[in-house]
């Protein structure tokens, strides 16, 4: 599906520009967005490097293990394929905590740490495991208690009540996460049943 969407975006862009007689716009868009991507990567390298380092300290100090053991009972039903006591639980907990608190800059490095733990359990390094899909279902729909960025932007735009959106955001976010977890559960079950029949 990713392959299809990727090709579709490029092809649609070229065709629309060609039909409108300004195919040169494709080259401009390409150059500009390639530059923008590198700038984006540079803008987050610093914070990524810092949090990966701090996460390693937390791990060496045993903090990740404590978190993992404490919250394992809650997470186990969502990630049945991760062995009991595996460090992946600790990284997943840290990432979800950072997400819920709206700490985007810390959430991504901690999430990448969790992904590398999950990858160590992966028999086929190019293909996503069900645990990875569940983890991303939670992350892409992200339950955020305080949408800090939006509140700040609303205040900057002169809002009389910047935090008015907290309730509606939490409700809409819960709908998104509920949908993500339900569909993920159904997809996971279908795959497991298929594997059971074959094996």
């Amino acid at each position: 599906m990713l392959n299809a969407i990727w090709t579709f975006m490029l092809a649609a862009g070229v065709l629309v520009a060609a039909v409108q007689g300004r195919v040169g716009a494709v080259t401009d868009a390409l150059t500009a967005s390639a530059q923008d991507s590198v700038q984006l990567i540079f803008s987050f390298i610093g914070i990524l490097v810092f949090w990966t380092g701090l996460a390693r300290v937390a791990e060496a100090a045993g903090l990740v293990d404590v978190l993992a053991r404490a919250l394992q009972p809650v997470l186990r039903p969502l990630f049945p394929s991760i062995p009991r006591g595996h460090p992946a639980f600790g990284s997943i907990v840290m990432n979800l905590a950072a997400n819920v608190l709206g700490l985007g800059s810390a959430a991504t490095p901690l999430g990448l740490k969790a992904m590398s733990e999950l990858q160590s359990l992966n028999p086929d390094s190019r293909t996503a495991t069900p645990a990875m899909c569940t983890f991303l279902a939670i992350n892409t729909s992200s339950v955020t208690l305080v949408p800090t960025t939006m509140i700040a932007l609303r205040a900057a735009a002169g809002s009389l009540d910047p935090a008015a959106i907290v309730g509606s955001t939490l409700a809409a976010s819960a709908v998104a996460t509920g949908m993500a977890l339900t569909l993920d559960y159904l997809a996971r079950r279908r795959v497991e049943r298929g594997a059971g029949r074959r094996g």
């Binding site: 599906m1 390094s125 996503a128 892409t140 729909s141 993500a180 993920d184």
Partner: peptide, 26 residues
């Protein structure tokens, strides 16, 4: 970013699930 960091290219149902959640959230 997440799948790229571990070199996974076959993302399976993660993409349709993520997109469906966005539509539901909207």
């Amino acid at each position: 970013v997440y799948f790229g960091s571990v070199g996974v290219t076959r993302v399976r149902w993660a993409l349709p699930v993520g997109l469906a959640a966005d539509v539901a959230g909207f």
